[in-house]
């Protein structure tokens, strides 16, 4: 096994995949925590679908498809923020509109370039070999920008996530921050596409965050747990998919799902055992 792993890491495409996975594994779970707490998890799926249209448009116009996907996700994020103004009561409506529009556009554009269909599989389901140098730079850029954003704006983002209205009154620039957050979501989603694919990109955001939010005591510990779970899931998923010739996106998503179920099971067992032993929280 040891030799196998060494051999696996000797391949340049695997080195790129692991590097891309490490970068995405750092930023996607953090983003996922904020998306879940802000009840915006559908945003990730929507932006990945729109990004697919960008990939197709890029390929058809002779532009780098990855750059096209990246640009489309960022523009869509900005548009959703703008549309949110008009649908204050039904905040999910602009997200659904963009998802439908993005997917429809992708399907139509794919039809124009029939030769694209083959390479689309790697975008839809992810592929280890799909991680090109350009994509690696895009992933690196998105991760550095994201980590800086969440470090610098950790305080206003906490306030915004807890209560947007109260945050605005206490001086947080809500509109600017939510727009920047949406753009960052677009960048991260587009960057994660080559690894897990359009259809499973939200797995990287949702599953580590869902587990972390269940078991963490504080905000920082939730972030750390989500990153550890995300990185472990990505690395083990890439390894398994290499050795057993499985699609990386599905493998990573299934491993993360198993972590989540295991975590929930252990948590429930721990509560059960504590109750059995008569350990209760101090009452007031």
């Amino acid at each position: 096994m040891g030799n196998g792993v060494t051999a696996m890491l000797a391949y340049e495409f695997m080195q790129r995949a692991f590097l891309a996975g490490a970068l995405i594994g750092l930023i996607a779970p953090i983003l996922g925590i904020y998306l879940m707490l802000r009840r915006q998890i559908l945003l990730a799926d929507t932006l990945s679908h729109v990004s697919l249209a960008g990939v197709a448009a890029g390929a058809l116009t002779g532009m780098n498809p990855s750059v096209g996907g990246f640009a489309a996700a960022v523009v869509a994020a900005l548009l959703i923020e703008r549309l949110r103004k008009g649908y204050r009561t039904y905040a999910e409506v602009p997200v659904a509109i963009m998802m439908t529009g993005g997917l429809a556009l992708a399907v139509v554009l794919m039809n124009f370039g029939r030769t694209l269909s083959q390479s689309f599989n790697s975008y839809l389901f992810g592929s280890i070999v799909a991680v090109s140098e350009t994509q690696l730079w895009l992933i690196g850029g998105a991760t550095v920008v994201g980590l800086l954003f969440f470090f610098v704006f950790r305080r206003p983002m906490y306030d915004l996530t807890f209560d947007e209205e109260a945050a605005g009154i206490s001086g947080v620039r809500v509109r600017t921050l939510t727009t920047a957050f949406s753009v960052l979501t677009g960048m991260t989603v587009a960057a994660a596409m080559p690894i897990v694919g359009v259809l499973l990109v939200s797995a990287l955001l949702v599953l580590p965050a869902a587990l972390a939010l269940r078991i963490a005591g504080g905000f920082l510990s939730a972030v750390v747990i989500a990153i550890v779970v995300g990185l472990t899931g990505i690395f083990s998923g890439l390894t398994v998919s290499y050795f057993y010739n499985m699609p990386p996106g599905g493998t990573i998503a299934l491993i993360l799902l198993a972590f989540l179920l295991l975590g929930i099971g252990l948590q429930k067992a721990s509560v059960f055992i504590r109750r059995k032993r008569g350990v209760t929280e101090p009452s007031i």
Binding site: I33, L37, Y158, F162, S170, R214, G217, G218, F219
Partner: peptide, 30 residues
Amino acid sequence: VIGYVPQNASAFNSGFPSRVIELVRSGCHS
């Protein structure tokens, strides 16, 4: 400096990952 406690402030997301002291500390952010 305006302190605001909205209607149903207690209806916030129960899954919000914070302890009491962490949440109150965040009042100092501004």
